[in-house]
Simulated assay, not measured.
Amino acid sequence: MNRAFVPEDRVVHPIEQESFRRLRARLDTSHFPPLTRAVVERVIHSAADLDYAEDLVMDEGTLERAHAALHAGAPVVVDVEMVAAGITRRGTVCRLKDARSGPGLTRSAHAVRLAYEEVGPGALWVIGCAPTALEELLTLDASPALVIGLPVGFVGAAESKAALRESGLPAVSNVSMKGGSAVAAAALNALLYHLAAPASKEKS
């Protein structure tokens, strides 16, 4: 496995190594730039779904800036505890248990408001469950370092991700209605695990 994808102090289980070997045998990811490749591969690994290689939308420059913010200690906010459970090596903020629904406001949307009051601008937001959480985030002046917007569902998921892309915010999203907590956490983990390295080494 490319060392640029694995921190020196992270022990990779042989099953994970074999999984990535088989993934790369079925899908050539070598044309992707380093961070994009890391996100694509880890999302596919989490879902066993090769179609994510064409479904995901992201920009390498955006990922580079988000990677720097993440490793400089920027807060990570998640929409549900299932996303938090999938993110390793970093604490997260999730305010869903404190949130209440009301007229025109879901618990997930209220949780986003509460989280923003807590962390302020510059956070990384990881939304893998509720389209309404993503919709609410887009109404705030959150100035995020990155929005990983991968909510899943037949109602509102694809639409909320399209709105995220149209917003111009730094983002990782996908075009289809699929997504979920596991893939959203995987996208963030890809940035956590990736070592900054000289370009000549990352291409090896």
Rank of each mutant, 00 (worst) to 15 (best):
Y116V: 06
A111C: 08
E135D: 15
T106M: 07
S176N: 10
D49F: 00
S101N: 09
S101K: 12
S181D: 00
R3S: 15
A190L: 02
L23C: 06
T36L: 04
L192G: 06
S108L: 02
A72E: 09
S46Q: 05
A25R: 14
A185R: 05
S101P: 13
L23I: 00
E81C: 03
E16V: 15
E202L: 15
V155A: 13
F20V: 15
G149M: 10
H31C: 05
M58T: 10
L35K: 10
E135K: 12
S101H: 11
L63E: 08
P198I: 05
H45W: 11
P75V: 03
D55L: 03
R89T: 06
R65V: 02
V183Q: 01
M177Q: 14
L146Y: 08
V78A: 03
V93T: 14
G91T: 12
A99W: 00
I87C: 05
V12G: 08
E64T: 13
Q17W: 12
P144E: 06
E136I: 11
T62Y: 07
D98T: 09
R10D: 09
G104F: 00
L27N: 03
D28Q: 11
D28T: 02
F154L: 15
S167I: 11
T36M: 14
S181A: 14
E41F: 04
T132D: 06
L138H: 06
S176I: 11
D98H: 13
G179P: 11
P170F: 06
A38Q: 10
R100S: 13
G128Q: 04
A53V: 15
V172K: 09
K203G: 06
A74V: 11
A99P: 12
V6C: 12
Y52W: 10
I15P: 00
T36D: 02
A115K: 02
I44Q: 01
K178A: 05
H45V: 03
H110E: 08
R26W: 01
L50S: 05
R89W: 11
F154W: 07
A185H: 02
H71S: 07
N174E: 05
H71P: 11
R89L: 10
G149A: 06
F154N: 00
A123T: 07
T106K: 10
F20Q: 11
D9Q: 14
R37H: 04
A53F: 02
I44F: 00
T139H: 05
A72S: 14
F154I: 15
R37N: 01
C94T: 04
G86K: 08
F5K: 14
A123S: 15
L124M: 07
G120P: 12
E159G: 13
H13M: 08
R3G: 09
N2F: 06
E135R: 13
S173H: 04
H71T: 13
P121Y: 04
G179I: 04
A142Q: 09
A158S: 13
L114E: 03
E18H: 14
R26M: 12
K161D: 00
S173W: 02
S108E: 12
Y52I: 03
V183G: 03
K203C: 09
